[in-house]
Design a binder for these strands. Sequence first.
DNA 1: GTTGGCACTCTTTGAGTTTGAGTGCTAGCG
DNA 2: CGCTAGCACTCAAACTCAAAGAGTGCCAAC
Lengths: 344, 344
Amino acid sequence: MEMLSARQVKVLKAVVEEYIHSGEPVGSRTLARSSHFQLSPATLRNVMADLEDEGFLCQPHTSAGRIPTEQGFRFYVNNLTGLDSVSPAAKLHVRDRLEIVGGRLEEVLHDGVLTLAQLTPYVGVVSLPDFRQMIIRHIRFVRLHECRILAVVVSVSGAVQNVLFDSETSLTQDQLNRFSNYLNALLGELTLSGVKRKVLQEMANDKRGYDELFAQVLALSRSFFAKDPDQQSDVMLDGKLNLLEHPEFANVERMKGIFKAFEEKGSILKILDGALGGEQLRVIIGSESCCEEMRHCSLVTAGYGREDRILGRIGVIGPTRMDYSRIIPLVNYIADAMSQRLQS
Amino acid sequence: MEMLSARQVKVLKAVVEEYIHSGEPVGSRTLARSSHFQLSPATLRNVMADLEDEGFLCQPHTSAGRIPTEQGFRFYVNNLTGLDSVSPAAKLHVRDRLEIVGGRLEEVLHDGVLTLAQLTPYVGVVSLPDFRQMIIRHIRFVRLHECRILAVVVSVSGAVQNVLFDSETSLTQDQLNRFSNYLNALLGELTLSGVKRKVLQEMANDKRGYDELFAQVLALSRSFFAKDPDQQSDVMLDGKLNLLEHPEFANVERMKGIFKAFEEKGSILKILDGALGGEQLRVIIGSESCCEEMRHCSLVTAGYGREDRILGRIGVIGPTRMDYSRIIPLVNYIADAMSQRLQS
DNA sequence: GTTGGCACTCTTTGAGTTTGAGTGCTAGCG
DNA sequence: CGCTAGCACTCAAACTCAAAGAGTGCCAAC
């Protein structure tokens, strides 16, 4: 890729912003008029032709204006200077909502996507942490029926997960209570997979096999872990309807594709957490998501979590023609606010 | 409404079925050709004109064929004879899926809507039972943090509900276990609201105030019931995308309205459970739902539950032009199968 | 009561035309 | 050498117009 001249950069930026604003291909005349260039349309045409050669712009058809290519958007986003700051009203909105909501992880996350869907014309999205990697506060067993047992697993961040499984022998609730106590005493700062590993390890070298209670706890744990809460992580979406307001999605076919991608959340999850490098902010533009249906969408996401550990990502999905300079700071702000909320 | 002659009924039925099949307004010629009437188009025109006067048919514009009005569909549905029987393949599908799925209420219901969404080109819908009216098997309390407590409520039909609340005093898990045991011993065949009523009653006439443990259980229960799991009932939907395949929803505006109704599930719930008369089968056609957005949709639902008590309704949402004679038996079949599954 | 015929209505389709926005190119200016 | 004005060209969108096709209503005849 060639180095762009200062003027080219300025023109590209103007084209992108005008296009984000209007949604129409932008021509040399509009650009000359609306913008504060002291250049004639003819000159701008030359510059734009160069930018097209370099792959930053393209034309839907010969007699139309230019629209940015993905590469154009990418350049624009990478060289974004002077981001908008989050409006005080939005800040208030975010804070207010977070005040009200209870401390359970799911509630906080749900509140986050809801807020994003309200403050932007896009879809709010958040990936739930992989439960197996969360640090467990405790596990309780509830006897449902004969051997049928419900395990209630609570993480330190307040996520609650129910896991249904069968034990090998019928146990009373009293026994289960004792087992719970015993097991909880064992868990230090462990993740669910950590506990699993520890339990399996202990079983392998049964040097403590003489301890009756311990053996029983292990047996139960094995049944429990066999079930493996393999729903792993998940995503929440909100504001899908927002997308319908955008002219680029008036096309029913395109809409169908996107909604299909939303329905099977796996693909969204893959995009969100794929290559979990853990950068704080991430912008995925169009086909960069490697998801055919999401070709016309962009994602702006930020990691949330406790201290240095990123638990998941929250952000928005919208058309590639997204108001990046407003959205990026907003997503960052909400991710920060949520992280703080989870800290407490 | 005038009495219809046998011939009028036959023509109306033919028009409805042809329209359900093709989606196009049906004209006198097609009707004369496709159907096994021994009548000329001209005669059929006369009959159809009469049916239009009576309000059973209408014309989109003068030079088009006729389409059934809601009244026409209503008559058709009410006088449906010779319903299709459920195909063996569909029966197998339903049974197979129900075999696999676990016994938890939510799982069974979710499986039901999923199956409907797969077997029909419509949206599967089910209303979850009002939790407050379900008979409780037991309640467990789990200490999350200081006064913060998680109640796990399990119904006899296997529904599990988590309720988060704060107790007035800090309690240990051991205390909570004892309280759980005590409370569970109390619950007979009671619903959650029944338990609530009983607890409040006992508190009022505190003739047993001397019993320390009992007093504490009551105090905790009060905190718990203050929280009141007021999410009450809820609906699950599946297969929303199916609707996009129907030509009548190619219109983006109309689609938007329907999806909006889906998003705020309250309105769907109201349609489903509204006037919970408890008929086994119910067909709601177009504006009969009294929901503006659902004007172009029909619902076919059947009640499911245990023995004589209807817990909720399951069925499909589709265009008014729905294949009623196939859908009605299918919905009935699935509701029955689910009820049986819940029985066991 | 039923039917054939006919005039009429209205949508749909496609071809042809116009309009307008926008481009590329070139010659000329400072 | 960079910038600009002008001009020819392109193409999509909008519009008009006519023809085709589906269907109706009505009337007279069987």
